[in-house]
Design a protein around this nucleic acid. Structure first.
Lengths: 242, 242
DNA sequence: TTTATATCGTTATTGTTGTAACGATATTAA
DNA sequence: TTAATATCGTTACAACAATAACGATATAAA
């Protein structure tokens, strides 16, 4: 196994800013890892012991080499002609993403979206465990939604400190988003998953990740627009294919 | 047009691999446009007549030149020292994204997430109008959610054909996702906004856009992981900043 | 044993996206 | 009128991501 330290291939980044050791994977890699993980869990359940990068690539319509590079970032090593050990690979990806231990999180803002996220079981697969929900609406406080008691915003800071919660899900109306964020930051939250369309102001000791549905919709609209413009809309052709 | 004495020649322009006219905007551009639009609507409501790319950039923490390039893709032309006319800019972006006319859409799968999306008012700002919802659960069929009647999947094809619906929102459980998609495609749906973690199989007369929450969460986890690893977790420091 | 082949890991090349630089232009101020 | 300046649009350059190419290695077949 070769261990080149700073060759063009993989280590971008002005180096000195990062901590040693980690090859600093690209963003696109990080985004693809969960989809591998999802499939790997299925394979594990089926009792598959090994899986090749080629197979992973096929399912997700990617080039095998991309998969191999992505996986290399997690530190795993495969064997030629065989592939990767499924259990090992799951562990490697989970550790790389910080999903090896369930991360406790609070949810702020129990509207339509907030309630839906509380009810979403899938987060357990992504190392996320929403342990409490907060809102300002007296009509909601005290009620239970999907096994989670809704508490007053006044109780946020205490709860976060006591539980050493590091992660917050932000699903409040955009008008009060920054205010809510300030409270979360003061309470000690270090990462915010932002479902509002606002660019949040946070100190650089906190990371904010914006989840913007409009982005995906824009891409879809734009592509659909082109598609409909290019090919004459003929319902027949859509039928023929599969 | 300038004539620089470049050594490397002029083989740089995006060159017309695409259908005539459009300079073929990048994906990243398309993703940013909605956030500009959101702010522009606010400015319009405030009665602002002009806005500069610099201001737009400042709000979203982007470089002004990126904004100018993005806007250039929509075909708008600004005036130096003044900026862009707000109303014109809104129109240009909406037309570019295909949001100038409300696009009717159906939603398939009224679970937690589906119901939440039905209740989300914001889509009207994105040219999207969900006009019907479908599910297989007899317990849900016939009920109304957020002003939308839930219908049986058997009624999907007829409804889509009669209304000439082109867009579908997919919020079914992953196990039945492909099956639902096949029905949608046969009915004449041309664009699918996919909220399941499955890579859909669609003919190339249909575009499928995957909306993957796990992606964003992965990025957040990974960044948070690094942040917590680098700086010693000290609640004090988080307080100090803003 | 030898050969064929699927797959791995790495490096090289090409393409796409972001940043920097710069001339052009409209408003404001001297 | 002239000078200063903010902003626009474009081009040149740099950083990142995807693709292509290639040697290395483990299994299977001859």
């Amino acid at each position: 196994m070769k261990r080149k330290t700073g060759v063009s291939g993989e280590s971008f980044q002005p180096s000195a800013t990062e901590t040693e050791g980690a090859p600093r994977a690209g963003l696109s890699c990080v985004k693809r890892l969960p989809s591998y993980l999802q499939l790997l869990r299925v394979l594990q359940a089926e009792g598959q012991e090994y899986v090749s990068g080629t197979v992973l690539a096929g399912v997700h319509h990617l080039e095998p080499v991309i998969v191999r590079k992505d996986l290399a970032n997690t530190g795993i090593i495969g064997t030629p002609r065989v592939g990767f050990r499924v259990t090992e690979l799951i562990t490697a990806i989970e550790r790389f993403l910080g999903w090896d231990n369930q991360t406790k999180a609070v949810l702020v803002g129990v509207g339509n979206l907030g309630a839906a996220l509380l009810g979403y079981r899938g987060f357990e697969n992504f190392g996320l465990q929403i342990v409490a929900a907060f809102d300002v609406d007296p009509g909601k406080i005290g009620k239970w939604i999907h096994g989670c008691k809704i508490q007053s915003m006044n109780q946020l800071a205490g709860f976060v400190r006591r539980g050493e919660i590091k992660l917050g899900v932000l699903t409040v109306p955009v008008e009060v988003a920054q205010e809510a964020v300030d409270m979360m930051v003061r309470a000690g939250i270090r990462g915010i998953w932002n479902f509002t369309p606002l660019k949040l102001q946070v100190p650089d000791t906190v990371v904010a990740q914006k989840e913007d549905l409009a982005e995906g919709l824009a891409v879809l609209s734009h592509r659909l627009h082109h598609l409909l413009a290019i090919r004459v809309p003929s319902p027949k052709s859509a039928l023929a294919d599969r």
